[in-house]
Nucleic acid binder design. Structure first.
Lengths: 220, 220, 220, 220
DNA sequence: AGTTAACCGAGACGGTACGTCGTGTCTTAGA
DNA sequence: TCTAAGACACGACGTACCGTCTCGGTTAACT
């Protein structure tokens, strides 16, 4: 998947949108070694200096790679970072693939996962590049679309599945729009994190679950 | 009102304690004419070229001002914009001062205000600089603190007051933490706007109000 | 000829010894086109605006070149001008290569050459950059060394050779230190030119030759 | 003399040349304290940082004076320095007023004075400002005129007087143009000093005297 | 003795240029 | 043909000084 994902944005911007720009590079000749080094260097540097001070030149230098090799395969700094981040988390995210825990106790299950998410968003190694991408996405709609398609949506669908299970069990309102419900549950969390306005604690997560479940409850 | 960077007076008072920091400028000699021109130029330019392409040089040039005059009074591009935005909205925000409408019908009142907010966040003249500040705040914690103190908090307190009125009227749970409730109500809105993930419509606002009020309702 | 700053190769060879100094650029990749344009623009501009108002930015702009390309290859404004001047005069100076005229009449030969030199120092196209270099050299010892090595010394040796011929012919004191004699002959000329204190005329040149030859004459 | 001399250039540039520029300041109200502090600071700073890095702002700051006080009374950085230098040397130069020594032995007398001059031009406290003025004069003809009128000429006339005495004593050619002779004698000295090309030693001075006296000798 | 017009220290101002950094493109040599 | 290396034209950065222009606050000199 890694190689494919890396190619997609480049192909998209140069081939799919504009009809004929600068014959695209031959992906089969691409150096896997360089690709890895670039992604690795990006992740390291974004953690060390932050997104605003992250430069293509520094990435190239750290990766021992020519600048052109970056420009050839990625359309922007943010695209590199998105690939780098995707690759890193893809490995760790296989646990998500099996879905949220489903013990029958919805509140407990949600709390557990949100606690794990609190831990994640508190870990600088995860936080720095993720924030960088969120910022880049806020500034650039096209990047935002990719960001959400590749990172946010998969996570939200996992929540949605757990809510569906609860809905089928009659624990929440059968008319509830589940996608909207997930948005409702997670937005305060994401907002707090992004704005740093308020603590991102287990207690906050718990209150969030409480509040959301009151909203989701079957109508009396 | 004529607030400059919030940092300047702080730096001045602590100047005796810390040895360095380049003697702060004499605010009483400041040119009001230049200050206005700079704020005005910032607002114009951020609308024309966006935050990333907004340069200090362009602001100085448009304002007919030396670059140093900007660097003398503001620590960063974002700080200029924050002042500019604050100044612009302060004038228009006096309506907020009298609080949200209070017809007794909480849902209707909230919907009305959120519709107005939808309009605001759909207007490019407001949206461009506000997004710029949100992004800058996401990247810089210190700026974020000023941003929320000067722009977000005042708005949230207005909502909080309306909820308190409803709480006193027994329309919502008497144990509800109102600050948290406001956060819960507004976060999905802000998140949609910032990420552009989903439509920012009246209908969305209405669903938000419905969902929130179910969560806020007095416990059976 | 294509001499760049005389310092560059020296810096290169000593790079292994000294730890710092920002890895020198690769001279083999240097753009000849840009180099020429820079030297040309320097000569034009120094004539138009004078040395004090000569700026790197103006040179870069006139040459259609980035500022960095100048800073990459020359350590200072004066070094650029020295190269520019050297290049310009090298072409014209091939006449000097064949030495001074030697008709047997020393006084006549010296007068002839000094008259030519008067013409040269009266021509603004020559005078402006040369004065600029002389001034820069007076202020900066390191530049002065290059200035004299590349511009003054070659000229003086030509005079010295002519005096040697006269010495061998018994026309001047056999014990005379010829280098000193040349210095003695030319200094009043150079001093008048630099200070503008007194006219720089053929007549002055003639009196100079007369006076010098009286000093150089074989001792009775 | 000091107060008068300080006023002269300002009056000259603003009143004598242009018919009506900015009514000149009232010299009688001038602060002697500030004037002294400025001249003193100039001399100090030119020794510390050199002429090129000498700034009006630094002089004003060191002297504890507003910038305007400098701009009010002097037309340029060089003019300040010229006054500063003149003032400093005026005190020491009273010895010159009584002329060169006249023991009857011209060569010995010239050597003695030139040795003293070598010492002077070797002393950084004298050399730095004098070089600064020479450089400024080379770049600016108007300043050069003042420089020579106030510093060079008086010295040269002292030499001229000594040569006249020797001429009257029949020791040198009665037809010799004495002003020219002085120029001839001193130019190699000044040239060596300005260009740093060659040592400025007693021995050099002696050779200079020898050479010059051979040129000045009565014709056989 | 009080008024007043100047100089004075201070330093903000509109500018120009500095020397550096990073961008995205282009060129060269090597695998 | 892709790659590492890096020179290139360009644009912006944040700083240093320029010379001009207010500000109060002293100071003389003249009412």
């Amino acid at each position: 998947m890694a190689t494919t994902s890396a190619k997609t944005p480049a192909a998209k911007t140069s081939a799919a949108k504009t009809p004929a720009t600068k014959t695209p590079p031959d992906a089969s000749r691409r150096s896997e070694r360089s690709r890895r080094a670039i992604l690795r260097a990006s992740m390291e540097l974004v953690g060390e200096v932050g997104y605003n001070k992250l430069t293509i030149e520094a990435i190239a230098s750290r990766a021992g790679v020519g600048k052109q090799t970056i420009y050839r395969w990625w359309p922007s700094k943010a695209a590199v970072l998105l690939d780098a981040f995707t690759q890193t988390t893809d490995e760790a995210q296989e646990e998500y693939a099996q879905g949220l825990p489903d013990t029958g106790d919805l509140a407990a299950d949600l709390r557990q996962v949100l606690h794990a998410t609190v831990d994640e968003f508190t870990d600088p190694a995860f936080e720095a590049p993720y924030r960088a991408l969120a910022i880049a996405g806020a500034a650039d709609a096209e990047l935002a679309a990719q960001f959400y398609e590749r990172l946010s949506e998969p996570g939200q669908q996992v929540y949605e599945r757990r809510l569906r299970s609860a809905q089928e069990a009659g624990q929440i309102d059968p008319d509830l729009d589940l996608a909207f419900a997930v948005e409702f549950l997670l937005s305060p969390f994401q907002q707090r994190w992004l704005t740093r306005y308020g603590e991102l604690s287990y207690e906050f997560a718990d209150r969030l679950v409480d509040m959301a479940l009151r909203a989701f409850a079957p109508r009396g």
